[in-house]
């Protein structure tokens, strides 16, 4: 993927903050409104893909390294499974924060209500972890494939 024209680049610059904000909103409000870690992660990753397409994969790769993404993904996955492990005093995946008060421990009133961010126990934390993981995972898939297409275009027979 090579760089695109200046118009495309400025439009993608303009759009990127909105996409990122929307994506992180979806991730953070996953337990209240439609959305969650996967959906928000996909939205943020699609914003990153837009930047990659606009600026070309080499330039994108100079800002975001594949090994950093893989460490981020690993951290997200470890956070998710650790949250599951922490419930192990009762059972794996036990929601040990819900309904206990304190951080994320409020119980929303029954029925239809706007809800509060401070509810749902481990769910917001899991949403964050999964969101991080999905962003890093999808971005690194596209980044690796984009870089590979760059090297393919250069036409090296002996390098994979």
């Amino acid at each position: 993927m090579s760089e695109m024209s200046k118009i495309v680049r400025s439009i993608s610059n303009l759009l990127l903050p909105f996409i990122l904000i929307y994506g992180f909103y979806i991730i953070l409000h996953g337990h209240l409104t439609p959305g969650g870690g996967f959906q928000g992660g996909a939205v943020v990753a699609s914003g990153l893909v837009m930047v990659l397409v606009a600026y070309g994969s080499e330039r994108f790769a100079s800002w975001v390294k594949e090994k950093h993404l893989s460490v981020l993904e690993s951290i997200g996955a470890l956070g998710f499974i650790s949250l599951a492990f922490l419930g192990l005093s009762t059972a794996f995946f036990y929601n040990f924060l819900a309904g206990k008060g304190g951080l994320f421990g409020d119980i929303p009133p029954e029925g239809s209500n706007p809800g509060a961010l401070n509810t749902a126990g481990t769910l917001p934390l899991m949403n964050l972890a999964v969101g991080l993981k999905v962003i890093a995972g999808l971005a690194s898939i596209v980044l690796v494939m984009g870089l590979a297409s760059h090297y393919f275009k250069q036409g090296g027979e002996n390098d994979t």
Binding site: I26, P34, G35, G36, F38, Q39, A42, V43, A45, S46, V49, V53, L138, I141, V142, M145
Partner: peptide, 18 residues
């Protein structure tokens, strides 16, 4: 709506890009 957001983000954007 959850599935709609996921399908729009993943199916229409990431899949196409890949």
């Amino acid at each position: 709506p959850d599935v709609a957001i996921a399908e729009a983000g993943v199916g229409a954007c990431i899949t196409t890009a890949i």
